[in-house]
Write a protein that binds this DNA or RNA. Structure first.
Lengths: 241, 241
DNA sequence: TTCCCTTATATTGTATACAATATTATGTAC
DNA sequence: GTACATAATATTGTATACAATATAAGGGAA
């Protein structure tokens, strides 16, 4: 039950032939790493793919831009965002700040049914890992974090985290070395246990470590991997030579 | 030098006859309290006001929605947001969390030129207060806070604060009792002094007090004041009686 | 060949036209 | 007069058409 998509009610995610709006398909594609950072998003192509007019495609792209997972360059088009090493670290710092505040709130407000739902999301994530579907696992991990913010009951935090989590997905795609994410299940489980007990101190410490592990799994010294150079540098000045 | 508007370069704000996009005009109107919470934003009216087609009007409205200062209800239209008392307190809490992190960063990164610019913004705010133009003062106060985030060098914080600050403007309009904002100048000045000296502890304490004063100036127990009841409740079910 | 200029194509930006929904007005029964 | 149903209007949702810009292709000179 994907809680990462704000406007629509939950849907099964294995079925794609029913009418699903362009925003959600693109968002899901990015979060599941099917759309690589730097990829050009041609409007008429998307029109044909999703069977809607450019009006709705452009609406979806603008929304993704405001969530910072798509960059739109005037008269040049839309591209899947490819955060620089510097921006990546800003994003992780912002997540750190907000998620620490979130778990503190969650400790005070987490009900039994919230715990059950969060546990279910952990199980879903783990089953994806067991099947070797790391893209789905990554998306489900993000959904767990966002659900925590929903439980915390602070709408601005939810709003901000939605963008930050999807950006983190891009960061992991670009900078992370393989399965540094495999330890996530235990970390999520331990975190949930602390939240359930209302232990603010412990929860914040576990969250800090958890987010720290994401950052540690990344190497920001090397140049980022993007779809292809041509598109990656399409935003540069036309003046060549 | 309005730093609250992300896409365009700074402009003098006394001149309105030059081509100014719909987004900025609406945003400015809301931040300056010329557009009251709950006001219906009719698309064709805006079309005539700004001399552009509905396409651009809708683009601007969607962006404002994603910044949470406008609510769009399907087939009903767009309204200036009117945050409930509960949401208002969530917003102020989120600001508290983020701005404390911002000043801490700002202490480490604030250069001499940054100090000068921030001081200039304080002076502008004060001159607006001296002229009795509280709407402009409120907007300039927001610009000061956002500039602090820019100085702090964290893009996600800037992004989140842009929405939170404009929402705070709506909250003050709806819940604040008169001139509780008059003490702002000294608070901004003292805050800047602490940041300039790189005193993280002192800066965070001053910021916490400053934001606390905003909340203290509000009364969330009484029903919010909105443009008119009909529009304020336009989102409710059609079923009457 | 390589460089540069010109022309053709493709893509995005904006405005308009049409469809769907909601709101308001009108009229009739009670 | 009130309540309800129906028709007229207004407003939003979506698709298409046209304009502006950028990208790609072709052709001539050094």
């Amino acid at each position: 039950m994907s809680q990462l998509f704000p406007t629509q009610r939950p849907k099964q995610d294995a079925v794609f032939d029913e009418p699903m709006d362009a925003y959600r398909q693109l968002f899901d594609g990015i979060l599941s790493q099917r759309l690589a950072p730097g990829t050009k998003l041609n409007e008429v192509e998307l029109t044909q793919l999703f069977g809607v007019s450019r009006t709705l495609i452009r609406q979806a792209l603008q929304r993704l831009q405001l969530e910072q997972v798509v960059e739109i360059h005037k008269n040049r088009g839309a591209f899947v965002a490819a955060p620089s090493p510097d921006l990546a670290q800003q994003i992780l710092l912002a997540r750190h700040t907000i998620e620490l505040a979130v778990v503190k709130l969650a400790c005070k407000r987490c009900k039994l049914e919230d715990v059950q739902q969060l546990q279910h999301m952990i199980d879903l994530e783990q089953s994806a890992i067991d099947q070797g579907d790391m893209a789905t696992a990554l998306r489900r991990s993000g959904e767990f974090h966002l659900q925590l913010a929903i439980v915390a009951g602070n709408q601005p935090f939810v709003h901000a985290l939605r963008g930050l989590i999807s950006q983190t997905s891009l960061i992991i795609t670009m900078y992370s070395h393989g399965g540094g994410n495999a330890c996530a299940r235990d970390e999520h489980s331990h975190l949930l246990a602390a939240v359930r007990q209302g232990d603010e101190e412990q929860s914040q410490q576990l969250m800090a470590h958890h987010l720290g592990h994401i950052a540690e799994g990344c190497d920001f010294t090397q140049s980022p991997q993007v779809a292809n150079l041509k598109e990656a540098f399409a935003h540069l000045s036309v003046a060549s030579g």
